[in-house]
Amino acid sequence: MTDARWDRRPVRRVSAGPDVPDDAGWPRTVPAVDHLLRDGLDLPAGVTVLIGENGSGKSTLVEAIAIAYGLSPEGGSIGARHSTRRTESDLHEWLRIERSVGVRRWGFFLRAETMHGFYSYLADNPGTGDEPDFHALSHGESFLAVLRTRFTSPGFYCLDEPESGLSFSAQVALVSTLHEIGQAGGQVLCATHSPLLAAIPGAQLVEVGPWGLRPTTYDDLEVVAHWRSYLDEPMRYLRHVL
């Protein structure tokens, strides 16, 4: 057991708080959400990857945990407060975040679907550093620029499907960045479909599905098995849809 005096994890555990309504409907009807509220989720140091199909609840979990930690629902750091349209669930209001004592409360929430709005927020609220014009860059270039300018110190980093729109080489660069953050004492929680991101060395892998949440290994991931089969023989899959 880690001595609490030396535990530097920004988030040690996520569990249900006292305000979960007795008649909670969605999102508690999602098995992964119900699992979290019943059993909680311990987050180790380094990288935790939630991986599963669309609709499995992985993005709902990452979003709620990020907001409960104090991050903007539409992405950004602790201080970001830009907002366009509220789409988040009430799950964050039901969660309790167990933090480590004395750890700096820095974090960043990166979600692919709201990055354009975040770039506009940065343009309207410029910092003091040397930042690029994110809107003038391609999606992949701007994404990598965010990594370079925002993922620079230990903290709590939440990412929702960051592989969206990224090339193979850009995803490999993202693997390197997230691994470096973990090695430097930061903590990462990432929801993804990508077998590339699931291959981050030392990452805790949690498969999300009808069973709720279950720890797994890289070779046991369904998405890894499907990609291996598809790349080996694409028509094994395409003959059912063409």
Rank of each mutant, 00 (worst) to 15 (best):
S100R: 02
S100G: 11
V101P: 02
G102T: 01
G102M: 06
G102C: 08
V103Q: 03
R104H: 04
R104K: 10
R104L: 03
R104S: 08
R105T: 06
R105W: 07
R105Q: 12
R105N: 06
W106L: 00
W106G: 01
G107C: 02
G107Y: 03
G107D: 02
F108P: 00
F109T: 07
F109H: 13
L110Q: 05
L110N: 02
L110E: 01
L110M: 11
A112R: 07
A112W: 07
A112K: 08
E113W: 03
T114P: 03
M115D: 04
M115Q: 09
H116K: 11
G117S: 09
F118D: 02
F118K: 01
F118N: 00
F118E: 10
Y119H: 12
Y119W: 15
Y119L: 03
S120I: 06
S120Q: 13
S120F: 04
S120P: 00
Y121C: 03
Y121A: 13
L122N: 04
A123D: 15
D124G: 15
D124T: 07
N125P: 09
P126I: 10
P126M: 11
G127Y: 08
G127L: 09
G127A: 11
T128N: 12
T128Y: 08
T128R: 15
T128V: 11
G129M: 09
G129H: 09
G129S: 15
D130S: 13
E131C: 02
P132M: 02
P132E: 04
P132G: 07
D133V: 14
D133W: 08
F134D: 05
F134K: 09
F134A: 07
A136W: 11
A136I: 13
A136L: 14
A136G: 15
A136F: 12
L137N: 12
L137I: 12
L137C: 15
S138K: 13
S138L: 13
G140V: 04
G140N: 06
E141P: 05
E141G: 10
E141D: 15
S142M: 06
S142Y: 05
F143G: 03
F143D: 02
F143I: 02
F143H: 14
F143K: 07
F143R: 06
